[in-house]
Amino acid sequence: MSVFNIIYQYKEAFLGGLLVTLKLVGIVWILGLSFGILIGVLASKFSKTLGIIFLSISFLITSIPVLVFLFWVHYPLQVLLKVSIDPFYSAIVVLSLVNIFSVSQIVKTAIFDFPKQYIFAAKVCGLSKSKTFFSIQFPLITRQIIPSLLPLQIIMLHSTLFASLISVEEIFRVVQRINSVIYKPIELYTALAVFFLIISLPVNLLAYWLKLKYTRDISEN
């Protein structure tokens, strides 16, 4: 049986797993980026108050391994709260929190470290606040954060595999189950590796290229 035969034979299972993975990571990306950017902006604006709170939360969350955090939210927390949540939602909560607070730190640092002199130059050139933001701060900050945000989103994609351990029926779990039936680990895990490679490699390369391209821009000035 070739890889294609296997995939064809189990296409429904594969598609189902793929869909769960994509749904999971899609939600984690959207929540992480939108709330992460929002929190990052707030943290840089109110660095003495909100900033410290968000920084503490972010240290806490990023210091606990994702897997431990996931198990903790899925088991002890639900027992404590006397609820029982679908593991898919537990995974969304945990991965989104990790993403939100990682994104927010990247955004906050970039805004906070934005070279003041470019704002000075804008002020004495008589630029309005909004023109300064849209023509100078926004493009420069975006260039700085994208090379860090992209690899982080890939890490989040890879982290969705942990969800299989609290029995979310995502792609990894599906592959494991098919393997337990037909025992073709080489074909199956190679196919899985290729799948992740196709998504992750271009994004990581793009991030690397952007980094090379844009870090030069600022540092030599």
Partner: peptide
């Protein structure tokens, strides 16, 4: 109306 040219020029790099 009052403008400044700085020591490190501060041209916008992008």
């Amino acid at each position: 109306k009052l403008t400044v040219v700085f020591q490190q020029h501060f041209l916008w790099p992008h």
